[in-house]
Design a protein around this nucleic acid. Structure first.
Lengths: 205, 205
DNA sequence: AAGCGACTGGGACGATTGACCCAGTTCGAG
DNA sequence: CTCGAACTGGGTCAATCGTCCCAGTCGCTT
């Protein structure tokens, strides 16, 4: 293993841990499994991190920080708001189908954090990040569709995340694509029903 | 420990395991912790169950079987459908607030099952049970309110469960009661909007 | 009363875990 | 070139895990 800066080594361990958690779950992410994935020795782990929990903490912080830039590309300009919302949900769903264990790992990390006193505040940040992403998507979607929301954006964001969470859990359990589509249609219908057209100058008489 | 029938012993161990999982999570439910909670010796465990996974399997089956009778009492006759749906959600939410670790444990059991090949089919049954409960509640609620649903009851049940799951996860993360109320209001509004009044004889002209 | 099978207590097992330690090696600054 | 700090390999530790075993006890049947 080449010589690395402290930050770089920590980052590589976090990346390796993410891959292990993806594959074997949080419980499978032992220190030995992580260093094997990273191609390091066990000593390197405890040189970089004081403890396993410290690494998990940094891992969750990384995940929270980096998941906001995931699916912003799904917003297409010029579409009506119902289509835009539905497309956004579809993009998320396809991400889920293509990588189910990843979404599952995020849930597992949340539950692990809730059970670990030193990490118990992290889920709050995790969901704050989710809500932030949802707000951005809803905002940009509304802007390109020329509408505004009749509900505060914070409340709408939480509703959207509730849909994606509920959708994800049920699909992870029974892998019913058609049923998932029904939920997404319902979500798109009900959320877009809260959009009101902007009365621009050219629309006024 | 008094002499017990095989079924009785298994049942007591499952009950003890449920309490331990409630308190310490699935990972904390070791064979030793379970028998300590049940007041038995370690030998009794492996006399009753071939392995820990066999016990977990029976535990999940028990949970799935017994959770359907939880909140049927929330259906009050004579109320309109929007009020009935909102009250049902409120009843669930209060159950969640009064016993957060229990709901968390159910999620953890699901994720544990998904990661364990021999148990990987159980989440499907778990959600099938959720959907069944939701169907019964929606049916009886519609009956007392004198409406029918304009969507197939299966689809509606899945939507309702998506709401409760999404609601639960976000609340477990940030414990925001007011935000949860917003989601419940939205769910009650949008679901009750799918109810159509039954055209009874006395309403016909 | 005797005997058999159900059941238990206590100990032990091998494996795995997070953490630690220390003697070495390597690299960059001076 | 030298020296000190960054870093690594390999071994070890105590704790904990699921599982197993066996001698003994209990209660029911005959």
């Amino acid at each position: 293993m080449a010589r690395l800066s402290s930050d770089e080594r920590r980052a590589r361990l976090v990346q390796a841990a993410l891959r292990v958690i993806d594959r074997d779950g949080v419980q499978g992410a032992t220190t030995r499994a992580i260093v094997a994935e990273a191609g390091m020795s066990l000593a390197s782990f405890h040189y970089a991190f004081r403890s396993r929990d410290e690494m998990i903490s940094e891992l969750i912080a990384f995940v929270v920080e980096n998941e906001q830039q995931v699916s912003l590309a799904a917003v297409r300009p010029g579409t009506d708001i119902r289509t835009a919302v539905r497309a956004g949900l579809q993009a998320f769903f396809e991400l889920l189908v293509s990588n189910p264990t990843r979404e599952q790992a995020l849930f597992e990390l949340m539950h692990y954090s809730l059970r670990t006193p030193e990490l118990s505040e992290l889920p709050r940040a995790q969901y704050a990040s989710y809500f932030r992403v949802a707000r951005v998507l809803l905002d940009s979607g509304a802007a390109t569709a020329g509408v505004t929301w009749s509900l505060p954006i914070d409340e709408l964001a939480r509703i959207l995340i509730a849909f994606t969470d509920g959708l994800t859990l049920a699909w992870l359990a029974d892998r019913d694509d058609a049923a998932a589509a029904v939920v997404m249609d319902f979500a798109a219908d009900t959320i877009s029903a809260l959009a009101v057209p902007i009365r621009t100058k050219e629309h006024q008489r």
